[in-house]
Design a protein around this nucleic acid. Sequence first.
DNA 1: GTAGGGTTAG
Length: 688
Amino acid sequence: MRFKLPSNISPQLGENLLKPILNSGDLTRARQLFDKIPEPNLHSWTNLISAYTKQGLPNEAINLYSLFRKKNDIHLPPDRILLLSVIKACAAFADLTKAKEIHEDAVTYRFVSDLNVGNALINMYGKCKFCEGAQSVFDGLPFKDVISWTSLLSSYVNSGFFREGLVTFREMGLNGLRPNAVTVSSILPACSELKWFNSGRQIHGYVVKDGVGENAFVTSALVDMYASCSCLKEAQLVFDHMLVRDIVSWNVILSAYFLNGESEMALSLFDEMRTQEVTLNYDSWNTAIGGCVQNGENTQALELLIQMQIKGLKPNHITITSVLPACSNLESLRKGKEIHAYIFRNKTFSDMTTTTALVYMYAKCGELEISSQIFNMMPRKDAIAWNTMIISNSMHGKGDEALLLFKNMIISGVKPNSVTFTGVLSGCSHSRLVDEGIQVFHSMRDYFIEPDADHYSSLVDLLSRAGQLEEAYEHIQKMPMKATAGAWGALLGGCRVYKNVDLARIAAKNLFEIEPDNPGNYVLLSNIFVAGKLWGEASKYRKIMEEKGMSKPPGCSWIQVKNKVYTFAVGDKSNEQSDEITKFLNDIRYKVRLAGYFPNTDFVLQDLDQEEKEEVLCNHSEKLAVAFGLLNLNGESSIRVFKNLRICGDCHNFIKFTAKVVGIQIIVRDSLRFHHFKEGLCSCRDFW
DNA sequence: GTAGGGTTAG
């Protein structure tokens, strides 16, 4: 019921009127009333600010505090409680600029030495991942309690400074303070991250011996710690002995099995959980779905997503973020688009993590354009978002774009990390941007990032692909760490393209030492000898393969049409439209010949006559999949084919001409990258 | 009105 407000509300009356409305949770009405109080008292300000934070609107809380400062200036200084409520809002908002402002106010009004205010400030800086701030507030406290120490070490742990967190934990003990249950459950994740089994076990010992007061938080953290240290048995043991088990404990043991690659065990545990008394929560489903994806069980993950919905649970943004990589891995554009539509309908779109997963999904499924569009719309981009877009462009052979993104990333003030450079370098490598790549490599120092083996391998790849094989070899020799298979493999790959048998022998020798059982290396070397007409040596390595019982996985290509994936092997006749495919390819073969295509039978390694060789070429899985895609266009103007191995050189040429003849864009993703065929050209500019 | 249990890139 509405009633008419008195025209001039006294501060006390305002407070009394505001309270019941706030208790009812109607913030809009509370604000309307608040705005009618000419001079709200401190309680009213505090109560409204707290209410905003509680309802998940910390930015409103902070804005209200700014209004308070503007209106009251010197006449009404904030008290301790008002400051505490604003500090809490800043912690929830996690914005460093605002955090520093409120810290200054705490100094101005002489509350920084207050234990509660100090503790709240430490926590706030921790939430902003500004550990220097947390530490300096901590240092300034004349008296520190368990909460001060716990808040400080949590700041370190949550900001990724696990060692510093553990140092703080030890110092705390040396200063005579006893860690409690919260302290222990805050520090254990540091042991999990660092996989420091000994520290973790010591803390476990302390928990048992000193009776920290076991609760679900502590035991769950212990289970997670043991699981992270690959001690599944100990994890199970702690779980079995738990006195208090809540749903989180179950979720933690579930994730323990996934973490250790035991997805079968995990899934049967999940089934058990579903039949038990425990009520599954979002985290249970998200853990199961995410666990499946992490273990390569992508189809199972998508299945669980459906089951979750049947149970009446609406996937939340974490579910969606966890399941999107399954679409990326399966390259299922169809399913990915379905999930995108779901995101759109449910307005969880603004979440940066989800959007990043979406950007990557589109790129992996061949839709770089959509990927870029979504990326450009992101209001905030962190290093992972930028890296995702850089890697996506590199994957699609757009090195110049990757470089541009890298520059923009720097301009926008986001710090590149080691992954950024891996992405940019591989982009340069695929686009033959040699000088640019070398420059990027050397610029790593400017960002205080030490090149790792992958960066060196990228550099070797960059030079090898550009034909600078000697330089590439020199760089391998100059590597500060032992050269990896990636580096030697890159050199060997370059030797195949530029027909350098001598360096190939050296590269292969080293490669075989590191990876004696990788059939791909033997095939590659053998093919280099074939190209050099060194038949004897070529067959020697084929024989070694046979003796070792190794075989390269057979080439296959697949394409998604409507909701189904169709797979093709070489010379595959099992498809129901097989006859049409053959007829279509014969027809196309005639047309592309007229357009200037000539079959390159160098890619046929068997000893056959010319006509037979052409026949073999025409049976390659990628050609079959492309033909099938073109026969089942359903009005699309592009098709996407995926191949498990590298695309064959003749197929590459054939598909270029085919794209021109049929006027359709053909996108082929091979084991290394994407090729966009359009109007007789490929995005890789024949450089792969 | 001060501390603790998830998700995205290689």
